[in-house]
């Protein structure tokens, strides 16, 4: 892989890692949505860079889809929900902020540990391996976001962040799909966002909040 591309992907990895860590500690929903938009745009840049390097029109379209769906559509939609239901804050977490940061640090440490060493050893260069370690760390921290936060919106942002990290991992591993596959995956994500959007509205209307700890009526 070209050094310039690896550098771009490494910067995107940093953006992703920092954004998911901040997503874990931020209490403002608007900030969370903004962080999602930033990381989705960063991932789109990574795809565009790979498209340019590979001279692949298919990858270019994949980047365009990602930017349109996750960077613009999803963020705009979540913003609308926040304004519509006056959901300025979503501070509830199972762990407090220092503990959350500690767990996030441990998870990033796991990604850098010997556990995944056989995998990193297969990669073409040390810089790709370093970027991959960071991406896997971002994946684990995004998982923490989904488990730790009690807000439905945070769960959705967590899932989209996980998808972003998987895209970056696939790029770093040099995995290429064709246009049909990319379109199918993007279509899947678009439908998923639309469905999740409907359920955000339904949850608010039926439960009066987006706090998922209120979803406890099915314990029989």
């Amino acid at each position: 892989m070209n050094t310039a591309i690896v550098q771009i992907l490494s910067v995107v990895m940093l953006v992703l890692l920092v954004s998911v860590v901040f997503l874990n500690v931020t209490k403002r929903n608007i900030t969370a949505v903004m962080l999602l938009a930033i990381q989705s745009c960063a991932v789109s840049i990574a795809i565009f860079a790979s498209a340019w390097y590979e001279q692949s029109l298919e990858l270019f379209f994949a980047g365009l889809f990602t930017l349109a769906i996750k960077g613009i559509f999803a963020s705009a939609f979540f913003r609308r929900v926040i304004v519509k239901y006056s959901l300025a804050f979503s501070g509830k977490t199972y762990l407090n902020t220092p503990l959350t940061l500690l767990v996030a640090a441990v998870l990033v440490g796991v990604a850098y540990s010997q556990l995944f060493q056989p995998w990193y050893a297969l990669l073409s260069s040390a810089s790709v391996a370093a970027a991959l370690k960071g991406s896997l760390g971002a994946f684990f921290v995004a998982l923490l976001l989904m488990i730790n936060k009690k807000g439905a919106l945070s769960e959705l942002i967590g899932i989209l962040s996980l998808e972003n990290t998987i895209i970056l991992i696939a790029l770093l591993l040099g995995l290429r799909h064709n246009l049909q596959l990319e379109t199918a995956i993007t279509f899947d994500i678009t439908v998923w966002i639309c469905i999740a959007a409907v359920y955000l509205n339904l949850l608010y209307r039926q439960f009066g909040s987006l706090d998922v700890s209120a979803l406890n009526r099915l314990k029989e």
Partner: peptide
């Protein structure tokens, strides 16, 4: 509400 709750859990857990 109960079916919405079930559907939400189904969506999030399966997606994850």
């Amino acid at each position: 509400p109960k079916s919405t709750e079930a559907a939400w859990k189904y969506l999030i857990i399966n997606s994850l």
